[in-house]
């Protein structure tokens, strides 16, 4: 990738960001959107729609796209498996369990109302669930050397938790079941400004850890044995990568629901575009590509009024099928 390509990619992402603010159920002319953003003279209602609803949603989409894509890239490299994604370690299952316990269990006890505290509670519970799974995985990985065993344990743990969530769903009443199902469909629009601060902080911290893991990730491409003989402290790098993943995909899943397939598909799209395997190129590429794709999904979701999770899956699945067919002979 030349410098010009990077500039083009940044411009494209910025353009999609602006386009995402333009698209919505009420049509607002570009000039009014621009005035709202720059503090010009527009009606209070327009300003509210642009700043409080659309801008918030666009920023959430941007952060969510970056977060799940970067954690997907790290998981694919760490597990040397092209079909690994941000959720292979059971992070989304953990978040689902947290959300399910909260919505299906606690919500019925009427302690939680419609307050800000209440909505932070759902995300908080989901985040705790994701973190709990990751602590468990990190603990297991201290005892187990073989990364493939950890992959299998993560997937088994995820399936087990999903079963518990199903039981909770089965036992719950109609109302709580619906609010849980709506959470699983994913939404970028339910994030309050307080939550957005949490989300942004977690994503920035997770990204910083990901950037610090660039060299370890490049060494881990050759497998853990080679990485050790080239001087890498594999356990430490593994834990940094796990922590980064819970900060990135755990937090996004908690606030926006499980965003299927973006984290799995984006690293492959980035590899295809950049024709490179170096994480010094792949990481920034994945950031831009993930942000763009999620903004695009959000626009489609808004214009079709369908849940964003359905859109990300429908767009992501063809990419994954293409990867499987193309990579029949080789693994990453």
């Amino acid at each position: 990738m030349k410098k010009l390509h990077w500039i083009l990619a940044v411009v494209l992402t910025a353009a999609l960001f602006l386009a995402d603010i333009l698209v919505g159920s009420t049509s607002i002319p570009l000039s009014d959107v621009w005035k709202s953003l720059t503090g010009g003279d527009v009606s209070q209602q327009t300003r509210t729609i642009v700043l409080d609803i659309r801008l918030m949603k666009a920023v959430t989409a941007l952060l969510a796209g970056i977060a799940v894509s970067v954690s997907g890239l790290m998981m694919q490299t760490l597990f040397r498996n092209p079909l690994a994604g941000p959720y292979v370690l059971g992070v989304s299952s953990g978040a689902s369990l947290g959300a399910a316990v909260y919505v299906l269990g606690a919500a019925s006890s009427a302690i939680i109302g419609e307050s800000v505290f209440g909505s932070l509670g759902l995300a908080g519970a989901a985040w705790l669930g994701a973190a709990a799974v990751l602590i468990l995985i990190a603990f297991v990985s201290r005892k187990i050397k073989d990364i493939m065993v950890i992959l299998i344990l993560g997937m088994m743990l995820g399936s087990g938790i999903d079963a518990v969530v199903q039981i909770l769903q089965f036992l719950s009443d109609e109302m709580s079941l619906k609010s849980y199902v709506v959470w699983t469909m994913g939404s970028l629009g339910n994030v309050t400004d307080v939550q957005l601060c949490f989300l942004a902080t977690a994503v920035v911290a997770g990204l910083a850890l990901a950037v610090a893991s660039i060299k370890p990730l490049n060494l881990l491409m050759l497998g853990e044995n080679y990485a050790v003989t080239m001087g890498l402290d594999v356990r430490r790098s593994r834990n940094v990568i796990f922590l980064s993943t819970v900060l990135l995909s755990g937090t996004v899943t908690a606030f926006c629901g499980p965003l299927g397939f973006v984290g799995l598909a984006v690293p492959h799209i980035t590899r295809f575009i950049t024709r490179n395997a170096d994480h010094r190129v792949l990481l920034p590429g994945t950031v831009l590509c993930g942000a763009s794709l999620m903004l695009l999904c959000d626009m489609i979701s808004k214009s079709s009024t369908l849940p964003v999770n359905a859109i990300t899956s429908l767009l992501g699945i063809p990419v994954i099928i293409w990867v499987v067919i193309r990579n029949r002979k080789i693994t990453i």
Binding site: Y226, T229, A277
Partner: peptide, 15 residues
């Protein structure tokens, strides 16, 4: 001090 070449086959696309 020590470098190592193992039996694992390494084929990384685009590298």
């Amino acid at each position: 001090l020590v470098s190592f070449v193992g039996t694992e086959k390494v084929r990384i696309p685009n590298l």
